Amino acid sequence: MKKLILLILIALTLIAKETIIVFHAGSLSVPFSQIEKAFEKKYPNYDVIREAAGSRACARKITDLGKKADVMASADYKVIDNLLIPNYTDNNILFATNKMVIAYTPNSKYANEINSQNWPDILLRKGVKVGHSNPNLDPCGYRSILVTKLAEIYYQKPNFYNKLLGYGEYYTNGEENIEKIIVRPKETDLLGLLESGAIDYLYIYKSVAKQHRLKYIELPKQLNLGSKKYANYYKQVSFKITGKKPGTFIVKKGTPMVYGITVLKNAKKGAILFTKFVLSKYGRDIMKKNGQDVIYPAELKIELK
């Protein structure tokens, strides 16, 4: 009888759980997995369902496909501004930062030679394969392009961007340099290709490189998009990505990278609780443990009540 009552209580608990659907950037997969577990342990009446994709792809799921989500966390807060405000949300909370690096493995071609000064030459060498994510779907993709353009200026290497990527003003389908460049929807999709040797080098966030114990080149602050001090330097370069409507474009200028998180309109009550947990000391400690720099206090554009 006691066992039956216990089973009934467990069943009722499971039935009563409220789901919180969270769309988030691929680069947040590891810390958000740990945040999910910690949140559900503290609040067992909630079930967090996460879906990772490129930040722009996450937004497109909401705007173009009509998918329901309660919370979205983007690797670029401007994705929320550009694609979700005002129709899908009225808030945007700036909560984390990152840096761009060039990741590789001991088996990458010229791994014993590459450093923070010669990496542009290494990447241009014959037979070297390079990966980056799709700039129309993922902020890491257009940041990879911006870093390449900045490198041309910083290292004084005329035409480096065109030699390596050759996309012109905007990215189409990657055929511009198909023998050298591999593109996938989000940066974390390329990790397996790097680890298997299908590509030699990968433009990626420092936090992701650290989480996966990859070797990486620390880029100068003038290139890594991680320093407010060099905001004006970053503005020298820009790249066009697809806009809200087909045939339209958004110009992305180089800026220090800032992550944003938003509670969507008509979200369940637990969405605010989860977002507050991400911003709490629990969430911040998990983020920092995984190599993700945080903004504290977070810059709230609305008050979460």
Score class of each variant (00 low, 15 high):
171 Y>T: 09
214 L>G: 01
194 L>Q: 05
267 A>Y: 06
182 I>M: 12
260 G>T: 02
223 L>V: 02
189 D>M: 06
175 E>S: 14
250 I>S: 01
161 Y>H: 13
243 G>Q: 04
206 K>E: 13
226 G>A: 06
265 K>C: 03
210 K>T: 08
148 T>R: 09
171 Y>G: 03
190 L>I: 05
146 L>A: 04
231 A>G: 04
167 Y>Q: 04
223 L>A: 05
158 P>Y: 15
194 L>F: 07
235 K>E: 12
156 Q>N: 15
165 L>A: 09
185 P>T: 00
144 S>F: 12
165 L>T: 10
177 N>R: 13
268 K>D: 09
151 A>E: 05
267 A>S: 13
218 E>R: 07
268 K>F: 09
172 T>P: 00
221 K>H: 08
234 Y>L: 00
230 Y>C: 00
263 V>P: 00
227 S>E: 10
218 E>A: 10
249 F>C: 02
175 E>Q: 13
247 G>A: 05
180 K>E: 09
208 V>Y: 07
197 G>D: 01
203 Y>L: 10
265 K>G: 03
266 N>G: 02
256 P>G: 01
147 V>A: 06
254 G>Q: 07
179 E>L: 14
258 V>S: 02
246 P>K: 00
222 Q>E: 15
199 I>C: 02
163 K>M: 14
174 G>I: 04
215 K>W: 15
180 K>L: 12
159 N>V: 12
150 L>D: 00
235 K>L: 11
203 Y>K: 08
212 H>N: 11
217 I>Y: 06
219 L>W: 03
252 K>P: 00
216 Y>G: 03
223 L>S: 02
248 T>C: 04
202 L>T: 01
209 A>D: 01
201 Y>H: 08
187 E>C: 08
184 R>C: 01
223 L>N: 01
234 Y>A: 01
201 Y>G: 02
239 F>K: 00
177 N>D: 03
152 E>F: 09
247 G>E: 06
230 Y>D: 02
215 K>I: 14
158 P>K: 15
203 Y>V: 10
146 L>Q: 02
253 K>I: 13
197 G>L: 02
216 Y>M: 06
217 I>R: 11
173 N>T: 14
193 L>D: 14
252 K>D: 03
180 K>S: 10
202 L>E: 02
201 Y>M: 07
144 S>D: 12
154 Y>L: 13
151 A>G: 04
163 K>R: 13
161 Y>N: 08
216 Y>R: 05
189 D>V: 06
262 T>Q: 00
248 T>N: 05
252 K>S: 01
242 T>D: 11
208 V>M: 08
243 G>A: 01
186 K>F: 13
160 F>C: 10
246 P>I: 01
147 V>Q: 05
